[in-house]
Each structure stands twice: as structure tokens, then as C-alpha cells.
Design a protein around this nucleic acid. Sequence first.
DNA 1: TCAAAAGTGTTATAAATACACCCATGC
DNA 2: GCATGGGTGTATTTATAACACTTTTGA
Lengths: 257, 257
Amino acid sequence: MLSIPSHVYEEMSLYVERCLPHLSIDCVIFRYNNDQLQVLIVQSVVGDIWLVPGGYVQKAEDIDVAARRILLEQTELDNLILNQFGTFGSADRSFPELSSQGAHDMKSKEMLNWITQRFVTIGYYSLIRDNDQELRTSNFHQDIKWINIDDRDELSLDHNTLVTSARKKLAQDLLGQPVMLGLLPETFTMPQMHRLYELILDRSIDRGNFRQRILKAKFLIKLGKSPEKTSSRPPLLYKIDKDAYLSSLHQNIKLGF
Amino acid sequence: MLSIPSHVYEEMSLYVERCLPHLSIDCVIFRYNNDQLQVLIVQSVVGDIWLVPGGYVQKAEDIDVAARRILLEQTELDNLILNQFGTFGSADRSFPELSSQGAHDMKSKEMLNWITQRFVTIGYYSLIRDNDQELRTSNFHQDIKWINIDDRDELSLDHNTLVTSARKKLAQDLLGQPVMLGLLPETFTMPQMHRLYELILDRSIDRGNFRQRILKAKFLIKLGKSPEKTSSRPPLLYKIDKDAYLSSLHQNIKLGF
DNA sequence: TCAAAAGTGTTATAAATACACCCATGC
DNA sequence: GCATGGGTGTATTTATAACACTTTTGA
């Protein structure tokens, strides 16, 4: 049995009454950090469970704008890429039953009803490249953190599934969207980019072939040696030539079987 | 100024009060007929405008189930493929203003409010291969017909845009989903399949190369000569080896730039 | 016999794949 | 010097693409 902390009622009521019922937005925010593909998750004050950041759509607000607003409320950053990866609406898609403890007045009961209603959720994914980005929790969250995508089983409800879908969509978008611009730091090494590709596509790619393929596309600018200390040969530093990168993207669908 | 025919109120009220507000589903139904990619459209009794078939989600109904139900209400057929192509929710996404003529009682006013509310719509596309399928109109539609996809500018609201998005998604799905099974008749000729590919991808494909490529995939079964009279060499008839076709599909994402 | 459209083959280019080998570093 | 991982080259196979030639039909 979950319960709603009393200090949340007031603010949440104000927020919620401006929003459409039964409709939510969930944002899977990816970053590439420490050679891992990571996802931002927050701990809800309701039920202590870990979820992907999400919110509701205001009555006179575009859904894309809503997604951006929700994202901003979590990360304080305008992100480069924000894409839908699907809409999820099983009939039983709702919070587990909540305890009605502390819900004696009318307002509290309304809030209980709101939270436990059935939600159809629109999934967006977003990419964030600034790894020093400061995180702040909204009043509806008691904690916020990055997890490796492989650790997503600690997510509750169906948010595990959402992350899986988001990653699949991200992989599909890799050829046609400026994904590298969204995830790689300003400067990076070839092995870093290689590992990122492998993480997104979830398969191994031959090192030498990857290197050749990427260099042939001519959107990388060589900057020299990485100053980092390594226990082996130090990799070269690169940065992305944005214009060249963008024009190298395409959506040409092949016949391949 | 649009108006709602009085005979619609009763039935629509009953339907609508079981559904979630502000949320709709629109279905772009494709078929391949007469060497054209076609789309099913219906004429609403409200406003006489032409739209893609659509409806609402019942309060305890999966959205996928709702899409299937809505589809069934239009075509009486269980379709092979039903895929989301996106969710659309501009803040101003609603019917044009409706005349309140004939809306004197409470119920009528409620209906006006329902129809003119802001809708977030979930787009599904579906494929139908039976071209002799009988069409029936529901009571909310006065007419129903197939149009060529290039004639979609006669659609109202943003349904033109929906069809464009649906076709784009269909093209993306061509490699990984059994699209041919959904659109081609039981038996067909190589030129037919060739033209269908061109229509979906919206580009021309070399005839000879296409033929070789498809035959190499080994999911076609040759049946002999087409009995149809042609003014030139008659094409061969083929049918799809379903198992071979399904196992030839893949989602392998390449590195290509 | 001719036009039209289907069926087939040839060749060139480019991409994907599999490896092998060398190089720079810390220990 | 040696293990480690980065950088580079080469050869094979496969996919894409351009295009030419042949075949079958109706008129």
C-alpha cells in the first residue's frame, strides 16, 4: 500500500487541475558517461518507487511543448533532440492501489483519484551531452540519479519496458538523426564513439571497420593526441564538424532482406 | 459553421460517455488496388468533411484494442498488421467551431462540447489485402470510399498530415514487418510487387535489380503464367511463401551514412 | 513486323566483413 | 621486453546500381 505525503497535496493539486486527465508524458533521458549508456530516473514521493521523469499535459499545451517543459523541470537544459518512441495505453496501466490514509478531506481524495487513474502515456526520449549538468529534484521527487541502462530493472510500473522501447527507437534513429551530437562530449576519441555505437545498437562492431567507415564519412575533425594517461597507446582526439555531420545523415531506405 | 444532425445525438452520446476525453485514435488504412496505393476515408455526418476513420478509447480498453475495434467497425475485418505511427497533439488540434443550432437541450450541448474539445490522437496504420471487402458506414458517417494516396488533399483537419506520417512509417517498416503479406493479393506478378515497393518508398527502383533482389531472397513461389490478357508479354504469377518471407525479415541496422 | 512490357545477364562501384599487422604507452 | 589497446591496411564477400539484351505477347 502506497501513500501520498501530505506536503505534496497542495502543489500537486494546483498543477494537476490545469492538466488533461488520463494522459501523461514519460521522458527517457539518455547520456553517455563512463563508457556506459545511462538513463535518468527519479524517485517519486508517492510510493518511493523509481520512475523515468514524467508529467502531464496542460489543457492548452502542445504535447511536444509539454515534453520539453517536463524535461526542463528535471534537468534545466534545453536539449537538442526530443523524439517520440511510442504511446502506451494498456487498460490496466495505472499506479498500484494507494492507501487512503491521510486522505480525509475532499482535496486529498481528488488527488488519490488523479494519481490512481488509468493513464495513456506518450513516450519521448531525449539526449543530453553535458555530463556535469546539475540535477535538481522537483517537489514530487525525493531523489534523482543516473543508472546504467542494463540496471533498468529497478524501475517500477512498466517503465522498464519504456526504456527498452526508447533504446530501440534510438537505434533506428541513429542513421537519420544527429544522435552523436546529442550524446558525445565536445571532444572525444574514436574508441569512445565506437563503444557508444555498440551500446546503442546493442551488438559488437569490428573496431577497424568502424574506424574506417566513420573517417570516410568525413565529419570528424582530428585534434591531436588525448592528454589522458592510458596504460596503452593513447587515442587521438576528435570533434564533430556539425554541418558535415548533418548533411551526412540520410533516411534512404534500402531494399535489403 | 458546422452542425450536428439531430439523429446522431442519441447514439453518439451513449458511445461517448464510455470513452476517455481528449483522446482519440485515427486509423490510416492502406490497400494496394489498381496499381495505386490507396487510403480509406469516411465522410463525417458532422460537418460533411472527409476524414480518416477514427474513434475514441473506452475507459477500460487497451489503446491497441480500441484501434482494432474502430477498424472493425469500419471494415468488418481482422487485419494482419496494425502499427502506431505517432501521436499528434498540438494545443489547437480540434474541430472547427460548430454551430449551436439545434443544441437547445442539455444533451446536445454536451455533445457539442465533446466534439469540439481538444484531442490528442494516436495514429495507427493498417494494411488490408482483400480488395473485394465490403464497406459499411457507421451511423456517424454518411459516406466511405477509397482514394489514391496522392489525392489526400481532400482530407480535412490535419488528416492529410496523418496520412503522410503513416506512409513514412510504412516505408520504414518495409524491411522488418510483413508488409507485402498485408498488401499483396494471394497471387500477384513481379511488376505488381515492383510498383508497390515504388509506391511505398516513393522513389523509382530499377526493374531488373528489383527482380533479382527479390528472387534471391527466395520467399516467392512461382505459379506460372498470368492468364490475364496483356498487350505485351504476360508476367508470371507468384505467391508468397509465408514462413520464408517472415524469416527473411530483419531489423539489422547498418552503419551506413 | 513492330511496340510494349516482361524476363534475364553483365559489369562496375560501393559497402560490409574478416583479419592481420604495426605502433605507442605504462609497467 | 611485454601486455594492452589504439591505429592502419588488405582481401573477400556481398549489396547497390546502371544498363543492355532477349522474349513474349497483341495489334
